[in-house]
Each structure stands twice: as structure tokens, then as C-alpha cells.
């Protein structure tokens, strides 16, 4: 069963598209890594999926519906963790969680239970009544992560999650993602930390210049590049070399 379908999506900021005929899907319980250089189109892809940008062509379906067909279902089907934490300066940590629970219509008892376990997992119990101005970058990131996991949607969209987190925070995040996966949720994660992506992702999307250069499991990618024992780092460098060769030719 597919959770997310991206069908022939072309889009970008102005008329000149950044994304060209993007095609991929994410199945139930899959953790998919979105890998590419700066400017490859990772963030633009994510913006199209979360609906802050509209595709010029093609459509994006979440649980079978596009944003226009059923905005409430579409929006409640995913939660998003941006690369730079976006918090409300005027809300405490507790209020961020409460607001999220209200907006996603969580039952109060469900909210309390999930909240307690998340606070414990990310070691933020003592910061409950703090304002974000007193948080470090990593703590701010943790607030975003907790809000996302609180909702418990069918798809998590996570943009570069590891930068700024301390090692314990990274482990907690990976553990949480693993646990959610086992419960049937899917994850789309964009990252530059290739070793982590290689280790944890079920499938990888290699994005280059707004197109998907290759996708699949590590073995699929190795076959595409004809490099049987390569790591993701090797493949990645190979991909950028190809680009340079094209330019020289």
C-alpha cells in the first residue's frame, strides 16, 4: 500500500522549474532517504509535498487524496520537521505541544500519554514551561520533533534532522523513527549524513538537478552505478563526477 505518491511533478519558484518530472512513491512502513547536493531540489520537493508550493504539472497524493480534494485529510496525514526549527516565541514548550494536539484533534488522554513519553525520551521534562528563546538549537529541534511525533500521522517528512542534535538526541530520534515504522508509519527524510542514511533507510532517492538520478535499495543503486561494493558516499561522489563530465563534454 502506498502512502505518498508523487506523479510527474514539475515545479519551482518561478516559471523556470526546479523539479522535472519527479516520480516516486513511499509505501507503508518505509523509511526513504532523499539525498542530493545543495540546490538539487530536496527542499523544493518537500515544499511541494507539504503544500506550501504548488506543482505546475503532475500531482501529489497522500493516502490517495490530493490537497485540493481533501485538505483536512491531506494535512492530517503528515507531520513535518523543518531544517531550521520554526517555533512560536510566545509559546512555552508545553503550549507548543498543547497547540499541536488541539490542531490535530488529539484526545486529551492520548495527548497526555504521548506527551509524557516524548518528554522523557528527549529529556525535556524540566523545560516544560520555558520559552524557546532560552533553548539551544538542539532543544529547539527537539520541540519540533516532539510536536511531529505527538501527532502520529501516517507520514513523517523530516528535513535534515541530525544537525544541531546531540548524540543522545540523534539516537532518540532514530529510535522513535524505528518504532513508528514498526507501527506502520512511513518516513521521508532528507539528509547529508550519508552513513546514517545508508544504515537506516529502506530506500534511497538520489536527487540531482531536480531529477531523480537513481532510486531503490543500496543494492539497486550499486547496480545502477555498476559499483558492487560501494558505500553511499562513493555513489554520491560518482554521481557528481558524472555531472562534471557532462559539463566538460
Amino acid at each position: 500500500m502506498t502512502v505518498l505518491e508523487v506523479n510527474n511533478v514539475t515545479g519551482g519558484y518561478t516559471r523556470k522549474p526546479v523539479l522535472h518530472n519527479l516520480n516516486f512513491s513511499i509505501g507503508k512502513g518505509e523509511l526513504v532517504g532523499l539525498i542530493g547536493l545543495n540546490g538539487a531540489g530536496k527542499s523544493t520537493t518537500i515544499k511541494h509535498i507539504i503544500g506550501t508550493m504548488n506543482a505546475a504539472e503532475g500531482d501529489i497524493r497522500l493516502n490517495g487524496k490530493t490537497m485540493i480534494e481533501d485538505p483536512a485529510l491531506y494535512r492530517s496525514s503528515f507531520s513535518y520537521i523543518p531544517e531550521t526549527p520554526v517555533l512560536y516565541d510566545e509559546l512555552t514548550l508545553n503550549e507548543h505541544l498543547q497547540l499541536t494536539a488541539m490542531a490535530y484533534n488529539l484526545d486529551q488522554s492520548v495527548f497526555e500519554a504521548r506527551k509524557d513519553s516524548l518528554l522523557k525520551e528527549f529529556r525535556m521534562e524540566k523545560r516544560l514551561n520555558w520559552f524557546p528563546t532560552h533553548f539551544s538549537k538542539g532543544m529547539r529541534q527537539k520541540v519540533m520533533i516532539m510536536c511531529a511525533f505527538l501527532v502520529s500521522p501516517s507520514l513523517y517528512i523530516i528535513d535534515e534532522p541530525f544537525v544541531g542534535l546531540d548524540p543522545l538526541g540523534i539516537q532518540s530520534l532514530l529510535d522513535q523513527m524505528q518504532a513508528r515504522k514498526e507501527d506502520g508509519a512511513s518516513v521521508l527524510m532528507s539528509t547529508h549524513i550519508l552513513s546514517t542514511a545508508e544504515r537506516y533507510c529502506d530506500r534511497i532517492l538520489l536527487l540531482h538537478n531536480g531529477k531523480i538520478r537513481a532510486q531503490g535499495t543500496m543494492d539497486d543503486l550499486r547496480a545502477v552505478f555498476k559499483m558492487p561494493h560501494a558505500t553511499l558516499d562513493d555513489l554520491y561522489i560518482e554521481m557528481t563526477k558524472e555531472q562534471q563530465d557532462e559539463q566538460l563534454a
Partner: peptide, 12 residues
């Protein structure tokens, strides 16, 4: 600026 409530599944 982008705010998280822009993604909430509520009426715009």
C-alpha cells in the same frame, strides 16, 4: 514568514 499553523489540518 512560514509558521507551523499554516500546515494545520484546519480551515485556512
Amino acid at each position: 514568514e512560514f509558521r507551523m499553523d499554516l500546515l494545520f489540518p484546519i480551515n485556512p
